[in-house]
């Protein structure tokens, strides 16, 4: 499945990675070769094989519905780039 320049730009946009044209060209080359390597998978017949999401066939354990966390806003916001009145600030979101 050949990769095109537009695919790289699209992935970069979906992943919110700023990429200029020349960087995109550079990645196109790398990613193309990685996908070529990955494409070996297409040659394998997996008819009837169930996908494996986790290496162990374990099932989800459930947590009791208890409030165990206390307010740590001050600690958590110490590593935040921009806060005011306890809120994280971002450039205005247009609804």
């Amino acid at each position: 499945m050949a990769l095109e320049h537009a695919d790289v730009l699209r992935a970069a946009h979906l992943a919110r990675l700023g990429l200029d044209e020349s960087e995109a060209a550079h990645y196109l080359d790398d990613l193309g070769r990685i996908l070529e390597m990955v494409d070996q998978l297409q040659g394998l017949d997996t008819e009837g094989v169930a996908p494996l999401a986790h290496p162990l066939d374990a099932t989800q354990r459930l947590r009791a519905d208890e409030v165990t966390e206390t307010d740590q806003r001050e600690t958590f916001q110490r590593c935040a780039p921009a806060v005011e009145n306890g809120l994280y600030l971002v450039p205005r979101v247009v609804e």
Binding site: L3, D7, V8, R10, A11, A12, L14, A15, L17, L19, Y27, D30, L31, I34, L35
Partner: peptide
């Protein structure tokens, strides 16, 4: 970035 791009694609 390369791996994020591959994974996203």
């Amino acid at each position: 970035k390369r791996r994020i791009l591959i994974g996203t694609h």
